[in-house]
Design a protein around this nucleic acid. Structure first.
Lengths: 153, 153
DNA sequence: GCCATTTGGTTGAACATTCAACCATTGCGC
DNA sequence: GCGCAATGGTTGAATGTTCAACCAAATGGC
């Protein structure tokens, strides 16, 4: 027989919609601020951040995709744009001839350094300033649980 | 003098990155499932949901945009596509000649009814099944606080 | 009533993302 | 080493989103 749908009860419904609204509003706001102040969307900012933290400010494309939570295709297109902007450079991988290495340029690093304070301020204002320390802790646990759960399933 | 950036401390950093990864992974997963099973992205699904809940299954474009958390422009493009799919119809507003009313068609309602069980199951599996009841409650409070905070600022 | 402003909505272009197809290289089974 | 599946990455087309410009109708001040 058909499996019955496990519908959401009113509390779950409310939680899901609130989460949807809040996360969308937060990301939209940060995205708009970043676009206005740094001329790039948040996804591109995150690529630069990951590169800046990597040894030699460089990463294999697929490692970068994983770090930035992006698909390979998306990253490929994104790096093409970042390269056109002069913020990233591509190099051949010496140990694997299929590989490509994305390198953060000095120009890219400077752009990131200029954008970071404003963005961090935004994250603080729109997220952390609204929550109590206990809630921040709860949000961390919830998020880590969810991320773990999603990669397993 | 320059205002010092209030950088994130390690705990905040960890929270922010976990939240980013989790919410992105969750939305990506649900989006992919909905695209595969119902042939539409989550944003379009939500438009249909809001219409289905409105009296007469219809809403003014700007009310629909607010309800679905969408910009007017985005909604305009989206409704154009939903109309082409035969799921939504546009009508003139009788009381305000600038206005347009989006109406959910029977076909659209049927499509939504067919898509809902699978999507709800996805929300349950990927979100609620991973969290304790206490965490669900925490997530609701956090999300409502955030949404409130974001609309005020 | 008239004009300026605001509101409601659309449009097209630029940009971003997805999807499937593709190519080259590598690693594996044997 | 040969054949073949798996890996790493790119590409182009289709789709979705944003941004700024725009038009029409309604509103408010006077």
């Amino acid at each position: 027989m058909a499996v019955m749908t496990r519908w959401l009860d009113p509390d779950e419904q409310r939680t899901w919609r609130a989460f949807l609204a809040a996360s969308r509003a937060l990301m939209d706001t940060l995205d708009r601020e970043l676009q206005r102040d740094a001329g790039m969307p948040h996804a591109y900012y995150e690529i630069l951040v990951r590169l800046s933290e990597a040894p030699g400010r460089q990463l294999r494309m697929s490692d970068l995709a994983d770090a930035a939570g992006s698909s390979r295709s998306r990253l490929s297109h994104a790096v093409a744009r970042l390269e056109a902007a002069g913020w990233v450079r591509r190099e051949d991988c010496p140990t694997d001839r299929r590989g490509q290495i994305a390198v953060l340029t000095d120009d890219g690093f400077a752009t990131l350094a200029a954008a970071a304070p404003g963005h961090v301020e935004g994250v603080r204002r729109h997220l952390f300033d609204a929550l109590s320390p206990a809630q921040v802790d709860q949000l961390r646990r919830i998020s880590e649980t969810l991320a773990e759960h999603l990669t397993r399933s």
